[in-house]
Design a protein around this nucleic acid. Structure first.
Length: 421
DNA sequence: CATGTCACG
DNA sequence: ACGTACGTGACATGA
């Protein structure tokens, strides 16, 4: 069956040299690298994880009794349906937004807006339950007991953009943003005599936006090693770089992320708590200062309409079937996906090139590639060669493909994954 | 199995 | 008037 597929698919491929290149020079070599990473696995400190789970369990139990006390009746706090009924029917709290199925919404964004002691407790309960069920308990169930290591599966032909995905367990969504969740990362360790190295591409998608759009101000910011979010704030607000406040930088950062996602006024409004008018004005000023970015977005929509697909930097095709949809929302969704896809997909191309190149220079027995998290690679390395290897990795990852702005890699080392950042 | 929620880049 | 930022996976609930 596989051979019969080969005959049909290979004939189709012959018309497209860039796709042959991606198959033979990227996906097939990457497959071998992924196989070793899956076999390698990563060591977990099971005692530490277990202890963390016990602490979470205690807190969860205390939270539950406080919540039930306030509610005046016992109920399952893990049930969104029951939480909705308690909050909006029993306690009569305001804000009873409904989901598409008519149930009360009790999502984080809804509960955050309600000023009542019970919603704070429910959110804390939810957060800890998530950590316990998915990470402390969940990861421990996946450990290979001979090696004390977890072995993920990487899926190479799943996403719409060319990224990998990771399952059983998913090691691409280990907590990092909050202190409490980041404790989980301390359980990812290296054996005695070895350490973990984590190497991250800095702002890779925004750098690709600079490359594709050739926008003068964006390219200039990266070429001068500026803090790009700070520069955005200064440009849009028309103030000097050193007068940008941390809040102005935060807002500009949200706008830059919005760009990568094909930003809508509404999306930005929701993210920043701006009024609709403020968002419109901010976006308007942004595009005055970054006209190349606006042109990129318009050009990408047009390419998607004309060809039915957009491409990454290496020519990987990302199909956009809904780009001509008659339903406006579906069509606009396809446009946003089309704008994002070359950026996310080209970043995926670049890190795959890096994985192939780095794999070739890793000293066998002294270093192993363990994890890929979209813009980050994690290695387990003999302590004695760590610094030397870190420098080599950085150089290889930064030079694997030339674009209009520098590719910057930041590398850290530590006894666990948290310390390595 | 669908839904709601929430973890990541 | 409606409903919207891109790409993923795991878990608990409840039908």
């Amino acid at each position: 069956m596989t051979y019969r597929l080969y005959e049909v698919l290979d004939k189709k491929l012959q018309a497209h040299p860039e796709l042959i290149n991606i198959l033979h020079n990227i996906e097939m070599p990457v497959a071998r690298v992924l196989t070793s990473m899956e076999e390698n696995g990563i060591e977990l400190d099971m005692d530490f994880l277990d202890q963390l789970g016990v602490e979470f369990a205690n807190t969860i139990q205390n939270l539950e009794s406080e919540i039930v006390d306030i509610a005046g009746q016992s109920f399952n706090v893990s049930s969104p349906k029951q939480v909705g009924e308690i909050l909006f029917d029993k306690l009569g709290l305001k804000g009873g937004k409904k989901t598409s199925t008519g149930q009360y919404s009790t999502s984080e964004s809804v509960l955050e807006k309600i000023d009542h002691p019970i919603t704070d407790l429910i959110l804390e309960y939810r957060g800890l339950s998530k950590l316990k069920s998915t990470y402390t308990d969940g990861l421990l169930k996946q450990v290979n007991n001979d090696t004390h290591r977890v072995h993920t599966s990487y899926h190479q032909a799943l996403t719409a953009t060319g990224r990998l995905s990771s399952t059983d367990p998913n090691l691409q969504n280990i907590p990092v943003r909050e202190d409490i969740g980041r404790q989980i990362r301390k359980a990812f360790i290296a054996p005695e005599g070895r350490i973990l190295l984590a190497a991250d591409y800095s702002q890779i998608e925004l750098r690709l936006m600079a490359h594709f759009s050739q926008d003068h101000a964006l390219v200039d910011a990266f070429n001068h090693g500026q803090d790009v979010h700070k520069r955005t704030a200064a440009e849009v607000l028309g103030i000097p770089l050193d007068e940008v406040t941390s809040n102005q930088r935060r807002q500009a950062k949200a706008v830059n992320f919005g760009l990568l996602y094909g930003m809508s006024e509404f999306g930005l409004t929701r993210q920043l708590g701006f009024s609709r008018e403020e968002s419109r004005s901010y976006i308007g000023k942004y595009f005055q200062r970054y006209p190349g970015v606006l042109e990129y977005m318009e050009r990408t929509r047009q390419v998607a309409r004309e060809q039915g697909f957009v491409e990454t930097i290496l020519g990987r095709r990302l199909y956009t079937p809904d780009i001509m949809a008659s339903n406006k929302m579906v069509k606009q969704g396809a446009e946003r996906a089309a704008i994002n896809a070359p950026l996310q997909g080209s970043a995926a191309d670049i890190i795959k090139l890096a994985m192939i190149a780095v794999d070739k220079i890793l000293p066998k027995d002294q270093a192993k590639m363990l994890l890929q998290v979209h813009d980050e690679l994690v290695f387990e390395v003999e302590e004695s060669i760590a610094d030397e290897l870190a420098a080599k990795l950085t150089e290889v990852m930064q030079s694997v493909l030339k674009i209009s702005v520098p590719l910057i890699v930041e590398v850290g080392k530590g006894n666990n994954w948290d310390e390595a950042h």
